[in-house]
């Protein structure tokens, strides 16, 4: 049971790390940046008719916002599991007291 979980963790990390070693010369651009150039390739005359209202002024700011997004999510996840953990502990405590 617990071993299965550790194997899952390990697999995910390996899957994420492997490309960095397998495709060393790659630039790791976003796949949609590539789709963007594919659109201009297929239709050289296509002009995007709307641009983003707000764009992160730099890569750093973008990383910041992505980190905030992940942090909000992890915060909720941690709250949920912490809350459930406490609840279960209290129930076990209550069973012992009886």
């Amino acid at each position: 049971m617990k071993r299965t979980d550790w194997i899952l963790v390990l697999l995910v990390v390996v899957l994420a790390a492997a490309p960095l070693f397998l495709a060393r010369s790659a630039e790791f651009n976003g796949a949609d940046a590539e789709a963007e150039s594919a659109v201009t390739e297929i239709r050289p005359d296509y002009q995007p008719w709307f641009s983003p209202i707000f764009e992160p002024p730099s890569g750093e700011i973008e990383s910041l916002i992505f980190a905030v997004q992940a942090a909000i999510g992890v915060g909720v996840l941690a709250y949920f599991f912490g809350y459930r953990h406490g609840l279960r502990q209290r129930q076990q405590q209550g069973d012992k007291d009886k």
Binding site: L15, A16, A18, P19, L20, L22, A23, S25, A26, E27, F28, N29, G30, A31, E34, F66, A67, Q69, A70, I72, G73, V74, G75, V76, L77, F80, Y83
Partner: peptide, 27 residues
């Protein structure tokens, strides 16, 4: 309700994780 928040939070975290792929681009 808490579980609903959890499902939303999970999507929030995962879509913030840009991972490298073997093709040499990220998604």
């Amino acid at each position: 309700r808490l579980l609903l928040g959890l499902a939303g939070a999970f999507a929030f975290v995962l879509s913030a994780l840009k991972l490298p792929s073997v093709t040499g681009s990220c998604s």
